[in-house]
Amino acid sequence: MSHIVLAIGTAAITASGCVWYLPAIADLQAGEDRPRSARTAAAACVTWWACLALAGGLLLAVPAWQPAAQIALAGLVAGVLLRVRAHLQSRLEQREEAVRWALIDPSPAPLPVRPSPRALLGWLLVGLAIASLGAASILLAGGGPLAPRLAAAAGSAVAVSTAFLLIGLGNARRHRI
């Protein structure tokens, strides 16, 4: 497949992702008006999309596809790490808020709701399917020795599966499924 086709596809995906990264940019610009966890989650979102846009530009500028894939993978890993940090910050903020409310109303706190196993399984299956397709495309792309392609395929599959699992956990908790 031509790099131009991949770059156009990446540009289309990045343009359609504005429903996520534009509100995230607004959260970042709001500064201290937003909780720290929301700003960190917004930074994760902007990182994901900015690296994808940069990868699309690299597909046009560089003849090899590997630098674009490395930038996209680096953005995914950085975004996942930021998202995990945002989750930890959110839990800390919730505990602090619970302490404040406990001072006002000393009634017992409700038990935490556990995420639905079916919802998590759905997110994990979708993540595994996408990770498998990505790993297969890396292996079938050819060019070069097999060992680096196997490492890249395994690494990307683990990263994508982990990202979908974390997104599924966050979604299940947020919607209290």
Rank of each mutant, 00 (worst) to 15 (best):
A157I: 06
A55Q: 00
A50N: 05
G155E: 10
V46W: 00
A64Y: 02
A53P: 00
L81H: 11
I104W: 07
A50Y: 05
S90K: 15
G143Q: 01
L58S: 03
R95G: 04
L165C: 09
P148M: 05
E93A: 13
G155T: 13
E96I: 09
V80E: 13
A102R: 14
S132A: 14
R149I: 02
R83D: 11
G122W: 10
A153G: 05
R91W: 10
G134M: 15
E93R: 12
L76G: 08
A119K: 15
R34S: 07
P67H: 01
G75A: 04
V46I: 10
T162Y: 13
Q89A: 12
A151N: 06
T47H: 06
L165M: 15
F164N: 01
G144H: 04
V84K: 10
A68E: 03
L81S: 09
W49K: 03
A72L: 09
G143V: 02
I130V: 10
A61W: 11
L103G: 03
A64Q: 05
S116V: 12
C51M: 10
P63C: 09
W49E: 03
A154V: 15
G142T: 00
A131C: 11
Q94I: 09
V160K: 00
E97Y: 07
S90P: 07
G143M: 00
L125M: 06
A102I: 05
A74K: 01
A41Q: 08
R95V: 08
L59M: 06
G75C: 04
E96P: 09
S137C: 07
L52V: 06
A98L: 14
W123C: 07
P35D: 12
A152C: 07
S37Y: 08
L76A: 11
L150M: 14
I130T: 01
A135N: 00
L128K: 01
R149A: 01
A141S: 13
W65A: 14
L103Q: 08
I104N: 03
R39L: 01
